[in-house]
């Protein structure tokens, strides 16, 4: 544990002398920074996509909570009779846990945002709504519809929320896809940074042989490279991540409607997810560079 801690402290504080032994320029520097920036930028979107998908599936699963609505529209004199008949049928339908007539007050509160408070709902020929909760086994929508057609001609069974089940599955898949993309991006970054580190080491073969000649151990030599690549990756990822965050911020839809497009964004504490992107990229670079430095150095003698 203390070894890891010391390594981390050494990595952050570094050693100016040691940093200087590898000449600073070279295309591997810009390659690493650019790759990390690009991957972090994409990772921001992948995270946003995953979060939006999981938000959507949460929302949909909630409304999936086994509820549907029966709507009865009929001329005023018949409506109460049809309502009673419908309740009777619902009470005897297997799979229905409860059925409840939605009161005028509730209807008013549902409609007010759309029509304003001045509308005299009492005098409007509003359809009656029955809220149906199914039990765990669920009911057979098709046969319920057939029974209703015979006795309650004005009834329309609206069970569309049940159809959202495949949508929830799709949202889950989308979330998984986002996560998988993040893993892919990390792996791609690791691959490119490995190549860059190897290129940097062969470009600095003379530096390595001089260090070796004067008694530098492998750790000393590899640390000079590892530290540099880790910081480049971290800085690149900070840059790319920040840019991605700005783009997502302006991309974010201002509507309340939930869809994968308008929901692509971060809400509240979800922004904190972005903080992990640069350190994650740093860790990826650290592991990739350390591994390839170790391999190169061991291959030398």
């Amino acid at each position: 544990m203390t070894a890891i801690y010391n390594n981390l402290i050494g990595l952050i504080l570094g050693d100016r002398q040691r940093d200087r032994v590898v000449p600073p320029t070279g295309y591997t520097a810009s390659l690493t920074t650019f790759t990390s920036a690009a991957m972090a930028f994409l990772a921001v979107f992948a995270i946003a996509l995953s979060l939006a998908a999981s938000r959507l599936s949460d929302h949909w699963s909630e409304s999936l909570a086994r509820s549907s609505t029966l709507r009865i529209s009929a001329p005023a004199p018949q409506i109460q009779q049809q309502l009673d008949l419908a309740m009777e049928i619902l009470d005897t339908t297997p799979g229905i846990a409860s059925a409840r007539v939605i009161s005028l007050e509730e209807q008013r509160s549902l409609l007010e945002p759309w029509f304003g408070p001045e509308v005299p709902f009492e005098s409007l020929p509003l359809p009656k709504l029955i809220d149906i909760e199914e039990n765990s086994s669920g009911y057979d929508g098709q046969s319920l519809r057939l029974r209703l057609i015979a006795d309650v001609p004005g009834a329309v069974l609206d069970d569309h929320t049940r159809w959202r089940r495949p949508l929830v599955t799709a949202a889950h898949r989308l979330w998984a896809l986002g996560m998988f993309s993040i893993v892919l991006m990390a792996a791609t970054s690791a691959a490119i940074i490995t190549l860059a580190a190897r290129a940097a080491m062969s470009a600095n073969a003379q530096v390595i042989s001089v260090l070796r000649l004067i008694g530098a151990q492998d750790n000393y030599i590899s640390a000079a490279f590892v530290r540099r690549f880790t910081f480049r990756a971290f800085n690149g990822a900070s840059l790319g991540g920040a840019f991605g965050a700005v783009v997502v911020y302006f991309f974010q839809g201002q509507t309340d409607q939930l869809s994968i497009l308008t929901g692509l964004g971060f809400q509240g504490t979800e922004w904190l997810w972005l903080i992990i992107v640069p350190p994650l990229m740093g860790i990826v670079a650290y592991i990739a560079t350390r591994r390839s430095a170790g391999l190169v150095l061991r291959g030398l003698s």
Partner: peptide, 25 residues
């Protein structure tokens, strides 16, 4: 080990024909 050799070579000063340096320092 490689590191032990490196450590031992600190007690050995080596001068080669094509002596190499860190050219940026």
């Amino acid at each position: 080990t490689r590191d032990e050799v490196a450590h031992a070579s600190r007690k050995i000063g080596v001068i080669l024909l094509d002596c190499q340096f860190l050219d940026h320092m």
